[in-house]
Design a binder for these strands. Sequence first.
RNA 1: GUGGGCGUAGCUCAGCUAGGUAGAGCAUCGGACUGUGGCUCCGAUGGUCGGGGGUUCAAAUCCCCUCGUCCACCCCA
Length: 417
Amino acid sequence: MIQRPRGTRDLLPPESRLWQAVEQTARAVFGAFGADEVRTPAFEPTELFVRSVGETTDIVHKEMYTFEDRKGRSLTLRPEGTAGVARAWIENRLHDRSHPLRLYYIGPMFRYERMQAGRYRQFSQIGLELLGADSPLADAELLLVLHELFTRLGFDDLQVHLNNLGDPEDRPRYQQLVRETLAASREALCSDCQRRLDENPLRVLDCKVPSCQVIVADVPPVSTVASEASRAHVVAVEDQLDRLGVPFVRNPRLVRGLDYYLRTVFEVVSPKLGTNAVLCGGGRYDRLISDLGGPAVPGSGFAIGEDRLVDLLPDGFKVRVLGLRRLYLVPLGGAARAEALRLARDWTRAGVVLEVELTGRSLKAALKRADKEGFAAVAILGDDELAAGTVAIRELATSSQEVMSPAEVPAWWAGRS
RNA sequence: GUGGGCGUAGCUCAGCUAGGUAGAGCAUCGGACUGUGGCUCCGAUGGUCGGGGGUUCAAAUCCCCUCGUCCACCCCA
């Protein structure tokens, strides 16, 4: 038997309906705030990700799906969405359009990783990028849109973590500060953190080992060395969130895994998942497009992990999506079967959601199935009804049954919905 | 990349310790009730015991390899 590749999955009904509903909701919310969809390739030149995401990051280091095409060009399945959008901005000269531009994308990303709960090698992200605005209002708008989306999906227990990473010029100083602060207690850190201290000191800050967290508590927050401008920027974002009533918590130890972030960074985490609790990550990346050879365009954005989002969807939302009222049209006998699709066409045109029984089941078996599949009602079309030009409609929940003409069914259905 | 758990029917699992004819529940389909569901009873369908190799008269069971899956680490969505 041929099996799907490791780390991928098949989305089957009825769960696929949840994905559709989530995406529909995201499109509606994003669109209401002036965003339009952008679709970029699922693979790009490898160099794009090396230069944007950062050479020292784990993503580039060990998680990329990289291959050569027949002409020897190195291509990589996109591990995240922002780089492709930035590339498209430059290549299509979007700078020449009036901006800012709000672009969203929904699609698969790929990272070569060991499987774990809430983590897949092909996973879907819903991302929004706001390009061409350096105002704190832009960051606040993104957080607001996120909050609106999550609220509409029924989440009420998510936490937004916010931090200021400072400007790129501040980073060497801060790394130095971290090293100096922790030099004395180096031996007490976990082995990973000792390595991180050399390679990427910022990462020590969000280590999950309890003993490390105690030690790291002594490290001053980034804001102590962050530029005055970056501090003012993030404070302005926070003020705006307060004004909007969008809750958040300052997390001075929040570090993101991509090199291009500066100033505002944030994560949305769920208290329900232990390890892979991050549902969404984002931040500001004012240097990304110029670093890739484009004009100096400020940008800010986020990406939601759709797989995790769907996994954690509140029951209320699920019930609403999966509880669709459907009618089961059951023809009995050859003459009735010949009529079934014609009725189905007329009724669906009038707004009925139905399913035609095609297998020739007995009425008993059909009712049994209707009960199991959660149909709201069954339309019975047998010889008696056919002769009388009627159809019998049976409601499953109440066991009440009435006979009516086929033309009356849509109105009856609408009245019961 | 590192460390551990688990692979037997569509699903959840028993059987493995002491090798000897592959089982149960649920699900599916049908019947009892020949055009009226949920409960009950009866029956049927369904398995290369993840795959390969080895030991043995004989392997789901013991040994080796491999693949898959789950959990944790790393890191991230």
